[in-house]
């Protein structure tokens, strides 16, 4: 195991974040605050409680997920796409590192960063609404699992993308709609029955539902299923990455 390599990849990816620390920290704080002003205070005050939770509090897990998913994907995809784009990937390809070590370095750094952002959002939310977390350990587990799975997914996008446009494509066209339609800002039970069924095909629903359960013990689907779905997604990403490295897909002629 080339631990030195994992360490420097991780360290340099984190350093890149550090260089843009203001942007990295400030932007989630600002956007979260805006969501609370708009949804929590302005609109939320006219919405009654959802399953016994005030609307402002109810949207916290969804808001966190929204950022976690987009941040994990953005960080990891950019992290590996950028060296491919500039050509510096030659060094990683010629180094005595295994696919696994590269993965741990890049995905680990991206996941760490989005984990930190998630916690910052949580802290910011605490300023606006009363927060109680029913199952902190489960919350942590969902948080970490989500960060890792979606960082992995971002890593795949970063390898697949052949230009900057494609890099943005999936987050924009797939992830953002799925998150918004996945119950970030509402409970699935608020939808008409037909839509409730359709919504169940949206994997993000399971994520948000499970995460929300760890906060309020209310959920759209059972926690076990949520957990299973995340693990399934994680496994699918791992298999895809394994295949990519094995075949040298987009990395090696």
């Amino acid at each position: 195991m080339n631990f030195c390599a994992i360490r420097v990849i991780y360290k340099f990816e984190m350093l890149r974040t550090w260089n843009t620390i203001l942007q990295s920290v400030l932007s989630p704080v600002i956007s979260t605050s805006l969501y609370f002003v708009v949804f929590g205070a302005a609109i939320g005050s006219r919405i009654e409680q959802i399953e016994g939770v005030s609307y402002g509090t109810f949207i916290v897990p969804g808001l966190m997920m929204l950022s976690l998913l987009t941040q994990s994907i953005a960080n990891a995809s950019f992290g590996i796409f950028f060296p491919r784009f500039t050509g510096t990937i030659y060094e990683i390809m010629s180094a005595p590192v295994s696919a696994f070590e590269i993965l741990v370095g890049y995905v680990g750094a991206a996941a760490t960063k989005s984990l930190i952002i998630g916690l910052i959002i949580l802290a910011t939310a605490g300023f606006f609404v009363p927060l109680e977390i029913a199952h902190p350990v489960w919350m942590g587990a969902f948080l970490v699992l989500t960060c890792i799975s979606f960082a992995l997914f971002g890593f795949i996008i970063g390898i697949w993308a052949s230009n900057f446009e494609k890099l943005q494509l999936i987050p924009l066209l797939v992830i953002t709609p799925l998150v918004f339609l996945g119950g970030s800002f509402y409970s699935v039970s608020m939808l008409p029955p037909a839509w409730q069924t359709i919504t169940l095909f949206n994997p993000v629903v399971y994520l948000i539902s499970g995460f929300r359960w760890s906060f309020f013990e209310v959920s759209d689907v059972s926690v076990g299923i949520s957990l299973m779905m995340i693990c399934l997604f994680l496994a699918a990403c791992l298999i895809l990455v394994w295949w990519m490295f094995k075949t040298g897909y987009r990395l090696k002629e």
């Binding site: 030195c4 420097v8 340099f12 350093l15 060094e91």
Partner: peptide, 29 residues
């Protein structure tokens, strides 16, 4: 390996990028 193209990361600093290479090749700092 010194590649033909001048491929260097956009934001790297000289000493950092050299230390990075060292670590990548499995050597202690």
């Amino acid at each position: 390996l010194v590649p033909q193209e001048l491929t260097l990361g956009a934001f790297d600093r000289v000493r950092n990028t050299v230390s990075f290479s060292r670590g990548l090749f499995g050597k202690k700092p």
